[in-house]
Design a protein around this nucleic acid. Structure first.
Length: 511
RNA sequence: GGAGCGUUCGUCUAACGGUUAGGACGCCAGGUUUUCAUCCUGGUAAUACGGGUUCGAUUCCCGUACGCUCUACCA
């Protein structure tokens, strides 16, 4: 590599960032960091009609949550700003003019209505060499007429003049040699009537000005690549062109096709990285973050969609990803998104993450459920007890609420059928034993001791542990779930244990 | 319609001419856990099709089929 690696992610701020977008960011980021290069965020907001308030902030927030912070961006600044294309409007004009001067572009005066009419008239109409002379532009019109139109401020766009019968090709880092015949590429608009560039002009000009060395984007861009190659050739020289890498698409889980926001709504899983509130529709689209994904897991699962390190390893920290990432291990074909596997990644990361780091995140969901946490250390301890049975953060609520308050309902129906006086006698005495401990100034005891004592008491009542454990569990947590019974007793202590036994005994007797 | 890209278990993928085609998720069965989950063991299941090239093709070439993307003064 002859110069410092510089890559960019260039979204248009029109809504939430979906999986595919974040993965593009991730591959950019990993590639840049692997090569000790720079990652730039550039906002492609040249379409003023599609501007959505808050979308740019959302993108920045999302990158921050994922830990994929750009080195240069509208927010961070940098030596190649501004990083919003709308603020670079004047820059593009001179390159469009240069193309006109060189004869590589021309003015086109056709109105949108003219074009619509043409498209209706001619099936598969393309504004290209085939029809160029039938249209109203500076190639088909005489010089005087063009001058007159310009003088009268007739609205116009600038279009690229695609040469005939040339082969345009690029060496895509992922796909290898890809070539196109210019006879099938149309004269794309470069500069719109409002003076703003289209993507085609802007991406080439900005990649050049921002010294981008490698340009990554979704595979959907491949068909327009010849336009960009041509522009590079005309403007800056092919030897200056960044290396292209067209990333495979992320597909919907059922059927085929690109994954969309709708698929998530339809199938019940998030597609956006974070909750996205659309100010135009007043709708919020759920995000991975709010669904209870850890950013580490989110990044990890995205990385594995289309990339692997060649071994069986699947769980990667961001540092490991940076160290091992390489473009030649990126898959060519699109990948269907599998939400079940996504949850598996999250479960792995929950198990892997320190309890005290999990605590504030879990706390959020506990707060939402109105479960009061008085002692942060207690929370950390409880997280350690239940984390391995949680795939998603919100599951901590059901898995741990009984550690903080008595269960709101007790599944006595599961106890009642085998309930008898013998068992009643046992639990009655158990409550008394614990009460006397409280009176003796004892708050709790280690789980192993509790278990031994419990079994001894059971033997005294001629009851087997197997007959006692499930009823006891249900009395404490309300149902057939949760960690070890005596760990629960140890955590909630004698006082609450006694209260829950007595409450259950009451319920059982009233049945 | 046209162009480009793609095609290994249901899904994510490994195997850069020679493997009983490997791993993971899911699913099923068993074990551990006197609950559930975790964990462990085992099982299920794939090279789209047809031609070449080759001693030998998942792998290289050609064709077919299928799928996807694009085909806007959107990105």
């Amino acid at each position: 590599m002859d110069s410092k690696v510089r890559v960019r992610f260039a979204p248009s701020p029109t809504g939430g960032l979906h999986l595919g977008g974040v993965r593009t960011v991730l591959f950019n980021y990993l590639f840049a960091k692997h090569h000790n290069g720079e990652f730039i965020l550039r906002i492609e907001d040249t379409d003023q009609t599609r501007f959505v308030p808050g979308a740019e902030q959302y993108i920045q927030d999302t990158l921050a949550w994922c830990g994929l912070t750009p080195d240069e961006s509208p927010l961070h600044g940098g030596a190649y700003g501004p990083y919003r294309q709308s603020e670079r409007k004047a820059i593009y004009r001179q390159y469009a003019d240069k193309l006109i001067e060189q004869g590589n572009a021309y003015y086109a005066f056709d109105t949108p209505e003219d074009l619509d009419a043409k498209r209706k008239e001619i099936p598969n109409f393309q504004y290209s060499r085939a029809h160029r002379m039938d249209m109203k532009n500076s190639v088909s019109l005489g010089a005087d007429e063009v001058a007159e139109l310009l003088k009268n401020n007739t609205p116009y766009v600038i279009r690229i003049k695609v040469p005939e019968n040339e082969e345009v090709s690029l060496d895509d880092v992922i796909r290898g040699h890809v070539s196109f015949d210019t006879s099938i590429v149309d004269d794309k608009v470069l500069l719109k009537a409002d003076g703003m560039p289209t993507y085609h002009l802007a991406v080439v000009v900005d990649d050049h000005l921002m010294k981008i060395t490698h340009a990554f984007r979704g595979e959907e861009w491949l068909p327009s690549a010849p336009v960009h190659v041509l522009l590079w050739k005309y403007l800056f020289g092919l030897d200056q062109m960044p290396k292209w890498a067209h990333l495979p698409l992320i597909l919907k889980p059922d059927g085929n096709g690109k994954l969309s926001k709708r698929d998530g709504e339809r199938l019940g899983f998030p597609v956006f990285a974070m909750d996205w509130f659309d100010p135009n529709t007043n709708n919020t689209t759920i995000g991975f973050k709010e669904r209870g994904f850890l950013p580490e897991a989110f990044v990890n699962l995205l990385a594995m969609l289309g990339w692997n390190d060649g071994t069986d390893k699947e769980i990667f920290s961001i540092e490991e990803l940076i160290a091992n990432f390489s473009l030649d291990r990126v898959h060519k074909a699109g990948a269907k998104f599998d939400y079940e596997k996504a949850k598996w990644f999250n479960a792995e990361w929950i198990k892997k993450t320190d309890n005290d780091k999990l605590a504030p995140l879990v706390r959020r969901y506990l707060d939402e459920a109105n479960i009061e946490v008085h002692d942060p250390n207690y929370l950390v301890k409880i997280i350690g007890l239940v984390k391995e049975r949680c795939h998603l953060l919100p599951e901590f609520v059901t898995q741990s609420s009984f550690f903080f308050k008595a269960p709101s309902s007790i599944d006595t129906a599961s106890i009642a059928p085998k309930w008898d006086a013998k068992k009643l006698g046992f639990f009655d005495e158990l409550a008394k034993v614990y009460t006397s401990k409280i009176e003796g100034g004892l708050l709790t005891a280690p789980a192993t001791e509790l278990e031994t004592e419990f079994k001894e008491l059971g033997a005294k009542h001629e009851l087997k542990p197997g007959e006692l454990m499930l009823p006891f569990r249900i009395m404490l947590v309300g149902g057939k779930f949760g960690p070890g019974v005596f760990e629960i007793v140890e955590a909630i202590e004698f006082k609450d244990t006694v209260a829950r036994i007595e409450k259950s005994l009451q319920l059982l007797s009233s049945n």
